[in-house]
Design a protein around this nucleic acid. Sequence first.
DNA 1: CAGTCATGAGTTTTT
DNA 2: CTCATGACTG
Length: 749
Amino acid sequence: MDSSSEGSFGREVAEPMLNEPQTEAVLHAQGPLLVLAGAGSGKTRVITYRVANLLAEHGVPPYRLLAVTFTNKAAAEMRQRLDRLVGPEVVRDLWVGTFHATCARLLRRYHAAVGLSRDFVIYDDSDQKAVVTRILRASGIDEKQYPPKAFLHAIHQAKQDVLLPEDLPSRTPFEKLTRQVYEAFQEKLRAANAVDFDDLILHVMRIGESRTREEGEELRRKFRHVLVDEFQDVNAAQYRLVRALVEGHHNLCVVGDDDQSIYRWRGADVRIIRGFRKDFAEAQVVKLEENYRSTGNIVRSALGVIRRSGEREPKELFTQNPNGAPVLVVATRDERDEAACVVEQIREALRRGVEPKDIAVFYRIHAQSRVLEEAMRAEGLPYQIVGGTRFFDRAEVKDVLAYLRVLANPSSDVDLLRIINVPARGIGAATVDRIAEAASRAGISVHDAVLDRLDACGLAGAASKRVAGFAAMLRSLRAVQDAGPRELAERVLEATGYAKALKDENTAEADARLENVSELLSSLEDYEDEAVAAGGTPTLQDYLERVSLESDADKLGKEGARVPMMTVHAAKGLEFTLVLLTGLEEDLFPYRSPSRERDDLEEERRLAYVAVTRAREQLVITHASTRMIFGTTRYCQPSRFLGDMPEDAVEHAVSRTLSGSMEGRVRPAMFVRETTRQVARETTREAGERYVEMDPDETWLSAGRSVEHTRFGVGKVVRLESAATPPVVIVHFAGWGEKRIVASFLKPA
DNA sequence: CAGTCATGAGTTTTT
DNA sequence: CTCATGACTG
């Protein structure tokens, strides 16, 4: 699949495996181009070849070509492939990066246009939450009634849609408060010389759309070609940014798959890719429908799931690959039994010689991972959780980074407030409040208040002395001049006593934290080496930007000998020889929140499609009859998605534990309970077993009717096999296939 | 001011 | 169940 032709810049670039007109459009089209790339159709290859061709054949200078991805990992992968096609010396000048990284880079250049200084910092979720919490406290808003999360969500949502506070409705009290908090939030960020993730996009978008600023014109002329990967996931702000960038020439190539749009809740708007042809009437459209990744059975299963989706860009995924093994659907008793089955499958695969990194375990929500982890650990199988808490989100790492961020950008109040009493130096909440209040009265940052206006804070003698000590320490750290980022971090650890405080704690937990801190130091060292190798100078600010924009998934693959375990969301864009997809049960996948009842079934369906299409050779799906989740045991029915897979592509199995528990003993759970709709008379046949006798006139058993079985869940009657008493029917259950069932085990659904 | 207990809430999270 | 947050107590 991966052409290894060693084309160097200027030489002709090998062509991807497409038919003639597709190749022509993909490689050479000017103007807008929409590539609808089905799962596994090799879209990365397409983008890579297009870029290579634009450079080699069309003479586009690398620094005038922008390729945008959504993850750092995808960007790195593209770089790597291009290295081989056109050579590293060309790739170095290319603009390849995520939306956020690209915007951060542009914003470092155009910072003045939006009133930021060059040293701006990027606030992550917890920083943002800290800001909102401070606003709520300052304005006396009850955090119980109006949780910070709600405001953050609303602000985030608004920004994705390019809405200012005054654009928001203000009918309900919450809406009124939201406007107020949003406004204060922006003010606080501005004062702290900080941006959030959305601002990175918005600021650059505003510059790009500006008719009055010369930077606007400059930005609009900057790139001759723009390519966007995973276009189904763009939001309104990102789309407007891209449109501004290509305004003069419309040389915009977007690649995506509306069936894989799974981030609507994060502002991604699948309508943008679906409406692309309306916005760019002259757009050429290429559909890539051949899947090169997976076996026939996997592709047909995926198709079965997605085909039932309502509105979608019509396409038929197909493959010429052999059918391969059927998709194995295993019914298990509970989540422990499920984990045991997963472990067994992994063992088996390892025995066959599959490498750990080519196996993956998926789940819908993180809460499922614990049991799976325990089973892996018990069996001595090495695994790696992808996602979850990022390394850079750990408290101790954030602490050290907060020190570094204050040194790089003293206006950042959130960072300063985080570290003012870490490690504990006797500066309590009351003192901190006083300082913060004095700072806000004087209209200066907390940092400046601490260093220059301490006497104006009205602190008691002891408190004042301690804060002065903190200020002196900061001053001496700021005076450090010729140290690289790593050395500076070491000095921070030393001067603040942070390392010592952890050592003195002398607990296993503290040791683990200490370990993370030294990992941070080695990350700084890696960065320095890398920067020097790239011919640049390592700077603290550059490092801080990187860590803000880096995710856990980016590191995946660096650990080769571990089985990765992740949520389905984290799996997008990845592929594995063997995929174990767990928890395919109603209410778990598709997920239904107990509180909200918003129906996001379509997105859940696309999520299932993404999960299935990750597998190259083998897909094993598990579901459990009961599951302990959030402390309560739930009874589970197989997911409707299982029923959407073609019968001939799937093989059903029952775990040993479950089949054991079904056999040879009284099965009270399987006997039907009387329902109101049933005209039935209960009689006792044998001791301990209760049957329900059916009225022979009942029509609820006719073909097509929905019936419910305590174990198999809801199914559809295929036909009545015997009208005896009780009658026997053939029923098709999602996830179980066709079953011959005595009607007394059924009730109407 | 800094630990300890109670209470409550609980998807997914490329950046 | 498990984590985070808030009130309470030395």
